[in-house]
Design a protein around this nucleic acid. Structure first.
Length: 135
RNA sequence: UCUAUCAGCCGGCUAUCGCUUUAUUCUUAGGAAUAGAGAGGAAAGUCCGGACAGCAAAGGGCAACAUACCGGUUAACAGCCGGCUUUUUGGCAAAACCAAAAAAGAGACAGUGCCACAGAAAAUAACUAUCCCGUUACAUUCGGGAAAAAGGUGAAAACGUGAGGUAAGAGCUCACGGCAACUAUUGGUAACAAUACUUGCGGGUAAACCUUAUGUGCUGUAAUGCCACGUAAACCAGCGUUUGAGGGCGGCUCGUCCGAGUUGGAGGGUAGGCAGCUAGAUUUUAGCAGUAAUGCUAAGGCAAGAUAAAUGAUAGCCACCCCGAUUAUUUCGGGGCAACAGAAUCCGGCUUAUGGCUGAUAGAUUUU
RNA sequence: GGUCCUUUGGCCGAGUGGCUAGGCACAGCUCUGCAAAAGCUUUUACAGCGGUUCGAAUCCGCUAGGGACCU
């Protein structure tokens, strides 16, 4: 039953507040997983998983290309985020995540899908480690 | 078949999942269900022009900026349409003429500046050479005078050709021709064109400064108005309270208005929401006016509104295109599904980027 | 979204419309047993297109790239 809900990616699950984003970049932790750089941070609200996506205008000058990357990234995140969500429910925590596209070429769907799965797995793993060290 | 110009179009359906928004209903302020809508010709560049909003009123002058043949069009324009003139190219041996293209196309008889190299000289004019007179046996040299023609250069050189004239020469005079200006007449709304008369012929550059004429108040939807939240109405320093600090959104100044605070430092807080915000100088067709741009009338159609920023992903089928097999149609298999590109207040233009298909026109080539 | 500025060799940087200075770097030579330093020599440029002009790095227009400011 939660499977059906988990494919949604609505307004409340996007990082919108400018303040929250600034805090995330100031205090959050990060790791690189090509082509993404992932910035993340725990929050206290249970099950509040918020995410954002960006593609810099340094490598992609045209707005069309940037839109394309952001759309594909959002789509791929939407399909794969349920693992992370379930893990957070178990952990009783929330999380802010930001995906920065760092590559220099336009990706395709299959490539991004593989990379996003790997990234989500790594985030889930990080959750586990955190619990172990905490407890 | 190719090239150029103009006009139009660029996928459709199904399934699964998803985004933004509108209406209704439900639940309750978080949302859910149903139905509908959801990106271009350039949405881009921000190069022009407006609408709209604010600045007390939107005032004078200077400065600054823009425009610059004429007429029309428009809400407005540096846009568009038509005409004039000039230049270039082609047709022709050349001119006239025709066709096409381009023009930031006012003024160089207001003034200032610049014109490298070469050349006597790049504009008052000077120099060389020429001629005459004096000196001298003659010539040279030297002194005085004449006139402004000749001087190889250069992108550009003092109206051109011929004749007369003269000591030698010279638009000095004459004939033919060229150019410019004034005036008159005719045609044209006008720019301008043609003709006649008179006068005069010493260059270019205004996309150098500039002059003249005309226009522009400035800032821009992150404008502006409202609501909510929060801090420090505190601290230090300067100036000032009618002897007026400071301010009134580009600069200076005049005028005028507000006026008790204001400027800087260090530091603190907030960075949320609503309106503006999408239905209009709109578009298609027909008729009328006009050479045209465009305008008027009638009927119909259309109509995104996000804010870390929506319009997407996957799979399949059809349509379309390409390639291969097959005897043409057909059928089968494989591939592609397009280029340039993504609204951010809205319009009218301009510029730039652009693949494919269809139609029209023009040109070229081949075949009949 | 809006308002402006700028572009000259590999790098920095000057340049009234008339042959694009200079410095560093690179390369070669001299010097040295070898290098460094020093000296000499050479190569490589006006962002692109179009216009005005006899002639554009310069003036004008368009395009491209880079940068700054407004919050």
């Amino acid at each position: 039953m939660t499977e059906k809900l988990s494919y949604r990616f609505g307004r409340n699950e996007k990082l919108k507040s400018r303040k929250a984003i600034e805090q995330l970049f100031a205090r959050g932790k990060s790791f690189n997983l090509f082509p993404y750089r992932i910035v993340w941070q725990f929050t206290n609200e249970t099950g509040a998983l918020k995410a954002g996506v960006s593609a810099g205008s340094r490598h992609f000058k045209k707005a069309t290309d940037r839109n394309r990357i952001k759309r594909l990234s959002r789509e791929v995140y939407r399909i794969n985020k349920h693992k992370l969500y379930n893990q957070l429910i178990v952990e009783n925590k929330g999380m802010h995540v930001f995906f920065l596209y760092q590559g220099k070429e336009l990706p395709d769907y299959i490539f991004l899908k593989e990379k996003m799965e790997a990234a989500i797995n790594k985030l889930v793993k990080l959750c586990n480690e955190k619990r172990e060290t905490n407890s």
